[in-house]
Design a protein around this nucleic acid. Structure first.
Length: 259
DNA sequence: ATGGTCGCTGGGCGA
């Protein structure tokens, strides 16, 4: 099974690129973040005619997650148990969707950005991660993938210049500890062994020609439960997808699983 | 410290 995750930064503005990506890499399951679309807008995009089913959660112009699959979609769950923020106007909702595809439980996650270390959203981000970790402990014994935009650069090698992040989110000790806690629990970064750093990124800001100069961040990850991780045969970051006009600011991450 | 570029929308806001 070929599984991919991609912060697409609006699926409607990039549907042609999504279709090309699926075809180019023969993708079975694609988890999307920042779809920036309502649930009812996704069936209009025609992915069904390519043989894919779609499950989406989105309520406004920000965020929004989805999974599209040609190996089935079952047990759709919007939000994980204990996910904080529902109904809170401070929070942009629809950040997580869980589905079962071809025997694998896939969670498409858009971890809260945090905005600034002194912003209430930063506290929310840490709380969100702690509650996700709690929920995820019950998923470790079955093939499960926690995929998406984690909005955390786990090490200094995962940003182009750590000095430029002195007062920024994504690199604070608390965020890094929150990410590391998943690894401590047995979740594995299944891409890093196949795409070691430094200077290997998944996101580049649109401005200042960050991509052209490879000044990016590695913030998109596929974490596998032990039963899944041991079956990963290959993985890569589709950096080419980030090139050219009309690209998302994130590159897709692709994982092959021998099921 | 600000601004640079996108994508939502139809004036800013979030990233």
């Amino acid at each position: 099974m070929r599984l991919a995750t991609w912060n697409v930064n609006s699926i409607r503005s990039r549907i042609a690129r999504v279709e090309d990506f699926l075809t180019r890499h023969d993708v079975d399951v694609l988890a999307l973040q920042e779809t920036k679309a309502r649930e009812d807008q996704l069936p209009l995009l025609g992915l069904e005619s390519m043989g894919y089913e779609v499950a989406a959660a989105g309520v406004n112009q920000w965020n929004g997650v989805a999974v599209i699959s040609r190996v089935g979609i079952a047990d759709v769950e919007v939000g994980f148990p204990g996910m904080p923020g529902w109904g809170d106007p401070l929070v942009q909702e629809s950040r997580a969707i869980g589905v079962t595809c071809g025997g694998v439980r896939v969670w498409s996650l858009y971890v809260p950005n945090g905005r600034k270390p002194d912003d209430p959203h930063y506290v929310y981000k840490l709380d969100w991660l702690a509650r996700l970790r709690d929920a995820a402990t019950s998923w470790r014994d079955v093939p499960t993938a926690l995929v998406g935009d984690w909005n955390i650069a786990p090490t200094d090698d995962d940003v182009f210049d750590i000095a430029q992040f002195a007062r920024s989110t994504h690199v604070t000790p608390a965020e890094r500890a929150a990410f590391r806690a998943f690894l401590d629990d047995g979740w594995a970064d299944v891409v890093r062994p196949h795409a070691p750093g430094p200077n290997v990124y998944t996101y580049w800001d649109y401005y200042r020609q960050r991509f052209e100069r490879n000044r990016g961040m590695r913030i998109d990850f596929v974490l596998g439960s032990p039963p899944l991780a041991e079956r990963v045969t290959h993985a890569w970051i589709d950096t080419d997808e980030r090139a050219g006009t009309g690209a998302s600011d994130h590159a897709p991450v692709v994982v092959d699983v021998d099921l």
